[in-house]
Design a protein around this nucleic acid. Sequence first.
RNA 1: GGAGAGGUGGCCGAGUGGUUGAAGGCGGCGGUCUCGAAAACCGUUAUGGGUCACUGGCCCAUCGAGAGUUCGAAUCUCUCCCUCUCCGCCA
Length: 419
Amino acid sequence: MLPLELIRRDPESVRSAAQRKGEDAPVDEILELDRRWREHLHAAETIKADQNRLSKEFAQTRDESLKGRLKEMAERARADLAQAEAVKRQLDDLLLRVPNIFDDSVPVGKTEADNVVVREWGSRPDLASPRTHYDLGESLGIMDFEHAARVSASRFAFLLGEGARLERALVQFMLDVHTREHGYLEVQPPVLVNSASMVGTANLPKFGADAFKIEDRDLWLVPTAEVPLTNYHRDEILDAESLPRKYVAYTPCFRSEAGAAGKDTRGFIRLHQFSKVELVKITDAETSMSEFEGLLADAEKILQRLGLHYQVMLMCSGDMGFAQYKKYDLNAWCPGLGRYLEVSSCSVFNDFQAMRANIRYRPSRGAPPRFAHTINGSGLALTRTIDAILETYQRPDGTIEVPEQLRPYLGGVDVIGKR
RNA sequence: GGAGAGGUGGCCGAGUGGUUGAAGGCGGCGGUCUCGAAAACCGUUAUGGGUCACUGGCCCAUCGAGAGUUCGAAUCUCUCCCUCUCCGCCA
């Protein structure tokens, strides 16, 4: 969230940032509630201070004649405090609904058409009549949507045989690169998290409908490993020397919104459950932007090693989302689909998430704590990486050549579907 | 899931209604001593918020969380969460 102090001091900039993101920011309501909160709080604290003084006197003198006044003061303080707290609750709830501001380098725009291609890597493979990954996957017997619909629902999938093994190989490969070469700590996090964690990463209160909730319990299926990884340090004060913290985790991700839009209904693209290797960094306020570029490069490295053509897209203000300060998408080319698929989304949040999750660090010994900065990105989404591989490395007979770097992870197999 | 024990400041650990935001110890920081260091000694050492005559002062809150009793709660009551031990169950 944004500091209340910022909204007091410069409501106009908060309002205009929200507007350029295509979001609403209840700035006026917040300012009014803030005024009322402080009014009640001040009244309550003034009485409470008097009461404390008199109560101390009573403790020493045992002068029973003070009791009437004390009782009355206690009641008044309680009433004022109750009002202050009620107003503060409303105020806090609204604060959680104010979108983040964004970096100067973010292009102002309304839709994805206003996003900017920052760079491209590789080139589109020259294929005669490329088939889609789901066509290939089903005919190879490594992807199965029909049985998934029977067992679960639409928007679920089975990976079978070499398909399942391909995902396992990719996971292994990605984790190895990120831990050995990029210095991330491998983590196996819980995939059920509580509401406070969902608030911490800004999945709540606004986007509860996008996630799956466990019935009768305060637990949510994670929409991304970002939630448990970022919230790992919730309510902590970290040593500056221990920053940046770098975590990588492979988890399933669960999203209930997938499907609502009626988009990407075919194929292994937009599912209620998908797998992802996720990168998270907790940094200080000074180095977050360079650490962000570093994380992006770490994710790109995977695509490069796999030999997949991709573009880096800088998201415009209107397309970047509620919480992000700056965001890049990595889009991998899928020849069969004839378009790019988003295989990674890398974001920096400034202190927006850290304020919600109360993640701080002490810049130096004795210095007051500051809010950390948080960064995350997919490194990469497994499902769509598989799509890009199948479509990029397909051969005329419908079999799939395994990318060089992946072969050791597939036990030396160099072609999928070979009989 | 059942039974029992327990959750206090960076850590250990006192504290069962009244100058207890919290003894004592450890650790950290500053100082005295020393050529320097160690030891010893002295001092200091939380977080959030409000407010003002604002590089400082005053005030409020915080002893797992929430609610309650009381003029007053770390201390009493209730609910919840978590940890530990034993049993059960399992991967």
